[in-house]
Simulated assay, not measured.
Amino acid sequence: MNKRLKILRTELDLSQAEFSKKLSLGQSTYAALEIGKSPIKDRHIKLICSTFNVNEEWLREGKGDMFVTNINQQLGVELARIFNRGDNLTKKLILGLSELDENEIEIVKILVDGLIEKKKQS
């Protein structure tokens, strides 16, 4: 399970310090879990799964998908990845979209579709 912790952390593009902070754990405490020096307790598993939308079966046994597959939870995981990377422009765009009405969103959709199509052609 400790190997899957490292896989999860790297998938989320987080350092041990960033990952442990999100869990409200000390970095040394988390590091001991990740390297197998300390046992991973049920409370750690529940905390990790709820914080990062991780599939508990994957974390415990390596079975199934890493993340919970509910579409809303997947979206949350993807947004968390974006925000964890620290890309200020992407964050600003996402937060800006949340302030637009339906007509303005449609305009942005048309623009993005056009950019994607242009990229495919080049």
Rank of each mutant, 00 (worst) to 15 (best):
I40H: 03
P39Y: 06
L100V: 05
L100G: 05
Q74A: 05
E57H: 04
T29P: 02
E78P: 00
E34L: 06
K92L: 11
L93V: 13
F83P: 00
E34F: 03
I35C: 15
S38C: 06
G26L: 08
N103R: 12
L97E: 00
A32M: 13
E61N: 15
R43H: 13
I107E: 14
S38D: 11
D65E: 14
S98E: 13
N53D: 13
Y30G: 01
L59W: 04
A31K: 08
E57R: 06
E102Y: 03
G96L: 04
L47S: 14
K92W: 05
V54M: 07
L59T: 03
G86T: 07
F83V: 01
I35E: 09
E56N: 05
A80F: 08
I107V: 12
L97K: 01
D65Y: 12
A31H: 11
H44K: 06
L47G: 05
Q73L: 13
K41M: 10
L97H: 01
T51P: 06
K92D: 09
I107F: 06
E106W: 00
R85T: 09
A80W: 00
P39E: 15
E57S: 10
E99M: 10
G26K: 11
G76R: 02
L93C: 08
R81Q: 06
I45S: 03
G86A: 08
I105P: 00
A32N: 14
R85Q: 14
F67N: 00
E106P: 00
N103G: 09
T51E: 13
I71G: 01
T69F: 02
S28C: 06
E102F: 05
I82F: 09
N84I: 01
I107Y: 07
E57L: 04
S50Y: 07
N103D: 14
E78I: 11
D101V: 04
R85I: 06
D65A: 15
L33H: 08
A80E: 01
C49N: 08
H44T: 07
N70A: 14
T29I: 08
L47T: 09
K63D: 03
E104D: 10
T29K: 12
F83A: 03
S28K: 14
T51M: 09
P39D: 15
L100C: 07
G62E: 09
T69W: 04
I94V: 12
E57K: 07
K63S: 10
S98R: 08
G86E: 09
L47N: 09
L89M: 10
N72G: 13
F83D: 01
P39A: 09
K63R: 15
I105W: 03
G36A: 12
W58N: 04
L79V: 13
E104Q: 15
K46V: 07
L97R: 01
G76W: 00
L100W: 02
A32R: 12
I71D: 11
N70L: 06
F67L: 04
K46E: 14
L75M: 09
K41G: 04
S38I: 05
Y30L: 05
N88E: 15
T69G: 08
M66W: 05
